[in-house]
Structure formats: C-alpha cells, structure tokens
Design a protein around this nucleic acid. Structure first.
Length: 877
RNA sequence: GGGUGAUUAGCUCAGUUGGCUAGAGCACCUCGUUUACACCGAGGGGGUCGGGGGUUCGAAUCCCUCAUCACCCACCA
C-alpha cells in the first residue's frame, strides 16, 4: 500500500505543483491546432497578501481553465499583478512621513525606486500564494501593469485618443482628496451618512440654508427655481446688496431649474468652485467662479480674518460671527446627509476646479461596426447586440444604468506611482503654451517639460486583455506601428478576444466597462465574450471582512495547511451562485476536507484490490452493479461537463460530490466486494479522478501519481473521459436490488434487530445476488422457498416477492410503520391520480410526463395493495 | 428618489428554460469497533418555499402587491 490511511494534503501539494510546472502543463501553445480558451487573470494589487476573495476567483478561473484543457483546448490563463497606483502611493507616502521626509525631498526617481522595491517583495509573496491555490496559470507569460510593453500601449492609446479629440485637457470640477493630494474619478467616490448642523442664514431679502458655512465667503449668486411664485418679484439678473460674513457684498439673482422649491426655503447661494451642482449652474449661466479653499483644506485670502485656517476649525467661528451680526435664522443639529469620501483611505472629498485630462464619452467619432459611435454608444451596443454576455444577466440593468449616468472620465492623478501622462508643454515664442502628446517624447526635448501627473490605474488596466498578449519584445521596436505590432504578435492573434472575464461585480464599472471601452477602440475587437461575475466572500456572521475586525478575516493561506487546498477550493464554490455574496462557512471546509479523504479512500480501496487482482483487458461491465455504475458515471460525465461549460459550478460540484460519495463509495464499492471486476474498478477510479480534477486538482493528481494510473503520466493533461457501453436493463435491475437492500435496512433499523433471514419466492434477482444482499443488508442468510409468504414482513417497494422472516411477535411492532406507509402511499396516489384525472393535464402536459405519472401511479397502487394486505395480517395477529 | 438581490429544514445556502411526493452541507436523534475511510457506515426527525392576490393543466420558479433585511446608483443648498 502506497496510500496511507488518511490524506494529508501538505505532504503532497508543493511537490505536485512543482511537477506540473516542471512539465510545462500550464504553458499555452499558440501554434497548436487546438481551439483556444483564454482567461485574462484580473491582476491582484501588489499591496500585500492574498485574501479569501482572491482564493475564490483563482478557484473559479482554475476550474474553467483545467476543464478547457481537459476538453482538448489550448488553454491560456494569463496571470499578472497590478501596480495599484493609489493604494501603493499612499503606503509609500505614509512610510516616508514616518521617516520624517516626503516625496518632494527625495525626488521622483528615488520615490519610484523605493516603490519598486516595496512592490517587488509583495509581488513574490502573492505569486507564491497563487501557486499554493493550485492556479494552473501560464507563468511563462506573467505580466505586470507597469511593464514596458503595457506602457507603450498606454501611450499609444492616449495619443490616439488625443488625436481623435477623445482625450482633452480642461479645467473642470474634480473630486479632490486633500489627504492623498490627488483627484479621483467619480466611481472611486463613496458616500457615507453623517449627522451635522444645518444652518439657515439671512442673505439680503432671502433666507438660505447650508451645511457648509465655510464655503460661503465668495457667494454672490442667489439661485431659485424660475416657477417659484414666492420669489416671482425677483427677476433673473436682479442685483441687491446684502450684509455678509466679512461685510456688505453685491449679489445677483439667478433662476435655474436645478433648484428644488420644496427643499428648505427654495433659495440657495452657490459655490461653483467647490460643488458639482453649483459648478454646473455656473457653467449654464456663465457665472464667475472663485476658489475659497486650497488643496490642503485651508481657507484662502477671500476668507479675510479666517485666511489660512482649516475649514473644520473655521466653521464654528464663522457661524459665531454671523450670529453676532444677527444673520443666523435657524440651526438644525440633526440634519442627515451624506458626505463624499475617497473609497481608498476614506478621506473627505473636497470638490475643486482643476486643470486635468479627461476622456470624452459622448463624442461620436469612434469607428465601430461601420458607424461613428461615442464610447457610451459602443458600451451599450456590445451588450445589447449580444457580443458580450454578462452572467448573471441581471447585472445588465446595472451596467446600462451606469452608462446612462456616465460623465467624462478624469484620468489624471497627482501621484508619481503609475504611467506618466505622455504630454509635454513648452512656452512658445509668442508666449502661448504649446502641448505635445506622443508615444515617444518630442524629438528635440529642449524646452519641453513633461506633465507631472500619472494616469488612473484603471486606464492601464483597461488595456489588460490585449496589452498582455502583444509581443513584449516587438513592443519595444518603435519603428513598428501599433497596427503592425498587433499583427506581429502570435499570442494576440491566437488568444484575443479572450473567452471569459471572471471577476467580482464590484468592479463591473471600474474595470469591465473600461476594458470594453478601450479595447474596442484600440483593437476593433471585444475584450471577452462572456463576463462571469462572482460575489463577495463575507465573514461567517454575514458582515464584510474588515481590517477593523481582524478576527473576521479568513486567511486562505492559514486554511490550506490544516485542511488542504482542495477543501478550500470546494468550500468556496459549494452552494454558491453567480453574482451572489456568500458567507464563509467553517462547516463547508470541514465537509470538503472529509470529501477529499473520501476520494483518497476510494483510491485506497481500489489500490488494495488491484494489488491482489491485477486489472487485465479492457474495462467491461459484468455484474449488475457494474452496469449500473457505468450508467451512472456516464450520465454524470456528460452533465458535469455541461454544467461547467455553462458556469453552473456549484451544481457541477454537487453532482460530483454525490456521484463519488453516494453512488460509487456507498453502493458500487460495497457491491464490488461481492463480485470483483478489477479492470472496471480501475476505470471508475480513473474516470472519477479526471472529472474531479478541475475542482480538486491536488488530491486527484496525487492519487494518479502515487498509483501510476491511466494512459497518461499526468492527470492535469488528460482529456475528459469517454463513456463505455452498458446494458440499461441490467443497470435497472441493480436499482431493484438497491430497493431490496434499502427496504431491508429500513425494516431492521425500525425494529432494531441484527441479522435476519430474507426469504423470497423464486426471485431471480434475489437468488442471483444472494451474497451481495446478505452482505449489504447485513442479513444472516437468504433463501428461496418457492412457496408464497405466510409470515414475516414483506418488502413492498419492489415486485420481487421478498420478505423478512421474523417472529410474529416482532412483526407486529411494525404495524405503526405500516400505518405511516399506508398514509404516505394514499397521499401520493391521491396527488397523482388527481393530476391524471384532470383532462387538461393529460391533454396539455408533455406526453413524457403523463406516461411517467401513469407508471408511477401503477407502482404506488401495487405497493399499496401489498402494504394493505400486510397491514390486515398484522392487525389479526 | 431610481434600481438590484435576498426571504426555502435549527444554521448557512442550492434549486438552468414553470413539471417526479422540495434538496445539500452542518447541527440533531437512534443503531453500528462490517479489514477503503470514525475525516466512517446504516436509519431517522425536521420545511403550508416571507404574507396576500393573479396567470397556468401545473408555481419555490412567471406577474402584481405588501413586509423585512442587504446592497448599488443618484441627490443632499
């Protein structure tokens, strides 16, 4: 025996993974003739270690990839990591602050160098963890979002969009994070609820409400709805003088439909520099805009005596001053509103007007399917036209809704870690600023200075599916045009568009939509055909795992040594449906550790049999159990294959679990002990290991290697098994046999006795399989009496004239069970005959269902007759 | 304000396009040291599928409505 009694995963996993690597099992081959299957791995951020969420996506993608490989495809799962601009930058700045310095002191070059060191070690940790999860990714094609080739793609994309007028530089209102000192996109803004004080101030003849008195210094426009009759006497453009924070000011009346007359007094003043809505009103009417708050959140000169003060300190002082002037009309301390924060770091967002780079999403100049379209229109049409399928489909609605609300995308960031904007500026002879945008710096760099900003991480991530497939060396040859580069990239030609994008629903907008946008634009192709969205893994109590509750965090790498990677993988997909969140379940991991051990012991049993009874010849079913197991395995081979292909991972897993445990382990292996068929037993084991492999790669491959199974040396390269022929009638006979054994067990358990004598009257199945029945039902013996039953308890669930010969004394105790059974049978008969008595059912339901119902009714009725006879006999005992 | 999801056994959840008398894992109860496995085997209890309407021969599944919970988007002077 090579296999020890229990499966201990950590004894085998690292070696098995290394064996796969050594044999190049995961390496794709674009020159093969096989159909291709591609997944671009969503690159994890290089900020630390793998989370349970990473473990989930690695499992799902690995199942798909291994299944594709087994389906005879050239499967490429392309791995990578993300430079994670904003989070990494924040970590670095914090580290520098700790050391008493900052990025400006050490300079850009040194900053980049130190950041590379940091992410380098973090990357190695993460790659090791991904391998520990069993990820069958092609590590020879490992990519990084800051690779030189990707940088070229970034510059190509930026330049092309700039030349097409789709990227522009403009002073617009942005989401400014004073903590991280950068702009962020709309999608990175999160709203958190807050209770604050809502003030109502007197402002000339009006009363205005605000939660932010500190922004009000420069307010000189008072806005109301044009149809608000309370203010009908004031005309658009009227001016008036009002006493305000730092003395009298001239104010102008503006009428605008953005104002809700029902809110507060229906009048407000605006601060265009620090509010999105106010900015839009000011733009509509061509109003002046003035900055009040600087980039650190301090008040500017316009605040007079408050100049230089932080807004939070200044707020109460400003209110105090207004109160002293008698301008405070009302204060509501329980005002509920939400405040915008950066989802990274939770810094409060201060809108500012800044000169930034933007992508225009509304300009219809992009060629797509022969039409000039805007980015918005392309995003809509690829999903509407079915080029891309989102799974589950309910996310279509979210996706379209997001597009409808999409505004121009601010892509520049005031941080150093990332792809630098490929734009250069110089002041020309006439004093005007010139701008140069290009893939390469200007030919003569003298006088030009490069834009200091970097691009939003998602801008480079948006190029991920194809930038990773272009020839990495050719990308450095700038003689080649971008189109030539694509043509000369074998991987791009073989593997793009990719087959499926598997990712979390939380980055549908951030990433999936932006990949579609940039990829259709640059390559003329969709990035992927299907989008499969998984949910979040939450803590066992249903709440988010969070750093503030360290005990809530499940570390996948801590689970693996104790339970094994396979158990972790299966726990993560068990009972989980696409797009739905799941709670971590300790019970699930234990159940799957046990399942792995079950597989192990199924192999161990087979190993023992084969040692004494070497398999010879082709596997062919002989006994009833053989025919039955071949039938069951063949059915499930097809179904599980289909389920994986259609992304029903949980159901595929469920079928595998019960096939192995219930059908094979509990029935077939036990039955085989009565009538050995070593060749078939071996076939069953090999087949089950092959279909279990995508789910449980380690235990299946370990057994394969330890027992030197199969026609191939490595299970990971084996094709999905073929079915073999069986006799359906014999398989059905085994079902009858199962019924005899099960019912015998039930009677024995109900009456709680051991042994027992089973008699039958010329049952061929019972006499042919006497030893099997005796063994599995744990009987004393079995005999054919030829005579009809006269005493004991009849088995009524089959038509084989079998009965348990036991004393009338004990048999009478079965009366209660018989009564229950009678009730159940009558209920079942009532249900089905009611259905059949309904002419509409017989007429409209499919013929197959109707005939099934008839057969079922027939069966129940004969069972009822037998049970009733028995019942009356017991009554008279 | 707009939207999505959830509500199924004590707990955590599956349940493809409506179709066998509604399932799993865990937990629970009874029995069992059968040489693959106690990380086991055999048997069992437990649900009017959130409430109410409707469509249909047939509804956990489709439609309407209400309730509770979670989340997303927008707004917030």
């Amino acid at each position: 025996m090579k296999l020890p009694k229990a499966y201990n995963p950590s004894d085998y996993e690292p070696n098995i993974y290394q064996m796969w690597l050594d044999n190049g099992v995961f390496t794709a081959n674009p020159s093969s003739k096989k159909p291709t299957f591609t997944i671009s791995m969503p690159p994890p951020n290089e900020t630390g270690t793998l989370s349970i969420g990473h473990a989930l996506f690695l499992t799902l993608q690995d199942i798909m990839t291994r299944h594709a490989r087994a389906s005879g495809m050239d499967a490429l799962w392309l791995p990578g990591t993300d430079h994670a601009a904003l989070p990494v930058n924040a970590i670095m700045e914090k580290t520098l602050a700790h050391e008493g310095t900052n990025k400006h002191e050490i300079g850009r070059e040194e900053f980049i160098r130190r950041t590379k060191d940091f992410v380098g070690s973090s990357r190695q940790t993460m790659l090791g963890q991904m391998r520990a999860m069993g990820a069958s990714a092609d590590w020879t094609r490992l990519r990084y979002t800051l690779d030189d080739a990707l940088n070229r793609c970034v510059n190509e994309t930026f330049t092309k969009m700039y030349n097409d007028g789709l990227i522009y530089r403009g002073a617009r209102i942005v989401n400014w994070d004073p903590n991280l000192q950068t702009t962020i996109s709309d999608d990175e803004v999160e709203h958190v609820d807050e209770t604050t004080t809502f003030y109502t101030f007197k402002y000339g003849p009006f009363e205005i409400g605000t939660a932010r008195p500190e922004t009000k210094f420069g307010d000189k426009y008072v806005v109301m709805h044009p149809d608000d009759e309370r203010y009908a006497q004031y005309k658009h453009g009227d001016t008036f003088e009002a006493e305000w924070i730092n003395g009298p000011i001239m104010a102008t009346v503006i009428k605008d439909e953005a104002i809700d007359p029902a809110f507060g007094t229906g009048v407000m003043t605006i601060t265009p520099w620090h509010s999105h809505v106010d900015f839009e009103i000011a733009e509509r009417h061509g109003l002046e805009k003035e900055q009040i708050i600087d980039e650190n959140g301090n008040l500017l000169a316009i605040a007079g005596e408050f100049k230089g003060m932080n807004i939070h300190e200044a707020r109460p002082l400003i209110v105090e001053k207004l109160r002293a002037k008698g301008l405070v009309v009302n204060e509501d301390a329980n005002y509920q509103h939400s405040v915008a924060v950066n989802e990274r770091g939770k810094g409060i967002i201060e809108p500012q007007i800044k000169l930034q780079w933007w992508i225009d999403v509304n300009r219809p100049v992009v060629d797509w399917n022969g039409h000039k379209r805007s980015f918005k229109e392309i995003l809509q049409s690829v999903v509407n036209d079915g080029d891309i399928t989102i799974i589950p489909s309910r996310f279509n609605k979210n996706y379209f809704h997001w597009i409808d609300n999409l505004r121009d995308w601010c892509i520049s960031r005031q941080i150093w870690w990332g792809h630098q904007v490929p734009a250069w500026y110089k002041t020309g002879a006439d004093g005007q600023q010139e701008t140069y945008v290009g893939v390469l710096p200007p030919a003569d760099e003298s006088g030009w200075t490069r834009d200091e900003d970097t691009l939003d991480t998602w801008f480079s991530s948006a190029l991920w599916t194809w930038s990773t497939l272009i020839d990495q060396d050719a990308a450095q040859n700038y003689e080649l045009s971008f189109e030539e580069l694509l043509k000369q990239s074998p991987d791009f030609k073989a593997y793009h568009p990719t087959s499926v994008m598997e990712t979390g629903w939380d980055i549908l907008f951030f990433w999936v939509a932006r990949m579609i946008l940039c990829t259709t634009y640059m390559t003329g192709q969709i990035p992927f055909k299907d989008v499969y969205l998984h949910g979040m893994v939450r803590a066992e109590d249903g709440k988010k795992m969070s750093k503030s509750r360290p005990e809530s965090i499940i570390d996948p790498l801590a689970v693996i040594p104790q339970y094994g990677t396979d158990a972790l993988r299966m726990a993560l997909i068990m009972g989980v449906s696409p797009g739905n969140d799941q709670n971590w379940g300790q019970g699930k991991i234990e159940a799957n550790r046990n399942f792995c051990n079950k597989i192990w012991n199924m192999a161990r049993y087979t190993e023992g049999v084969l040692e004494n009874n070497p398999a010879s010849g082709n596997p062919e079913p002989s006994s009833l159990a053989d025919h039955w197991v071949v039938m069951r395995v063949s059915e499930e081979l097809k179904t599980i294959d289909e389920q994986i292909r259609t992304y029903h991972f949980s159901e595929a897993y469920d079928r595998l679990y019960h096939l192995i445990w219930d059908d094979v382990a509990d029935w077939y292996l036990e039955a085989s002990k009565a009538e050995l068929n070593p060749a078939l037993l071996k076939w069953v084991l090999e087949t089950l290991l092959t279909i279990a492999h995508p789910f449980a790669p380690f235990v299946s491959e370990t057994i394969w290697q330890e027992l030197s199974l199969g026609d191939k040396e490595i299970l990971a390269t084996r094709l999905w098994p073929e079915t073999i022929a069986c006799d359906d009638a014999k398989a059905k006979e085994f079902e009858t046999l199962k019924a005899i054994i099960s019912e015998t067990r039930v009677i024995k358990a109900t009456l709680n006795f051991n042994g027992g004598l089973l008699k039958h009257s010329n049952s061929r199945i019972a006499s042919d399989n006497a030893s099997l029945i005796t063994k599995m039902a744990r009987l004393e013996s079995i005999e054919n009496t030829e005579a009809a039953m006269s005493s004991g308890i009849a088995l009524t669930e089959n038509n084989e004239n079998c009965w348990l010969e036991i004393s009338e004394e004990i048999a009478r105790n079965y009366l209660a069970s018989t009564e229950e059974k009678l009730a159940d049978l009558k209920k079942g008969i009532a249900t089905i005959s009611a259905r059949l008595d309904n002419p509409a059912y017989v007429e409209k339901a499919p013929e197959k269902l109707v005939s099934e119902s008839r057969a079922q009714l027939e069966q129940l009725r004969s069972e009822l007759v037998a049970t009733e006879e028995q019942y009356h006999r017991f009554k008279t005992l």
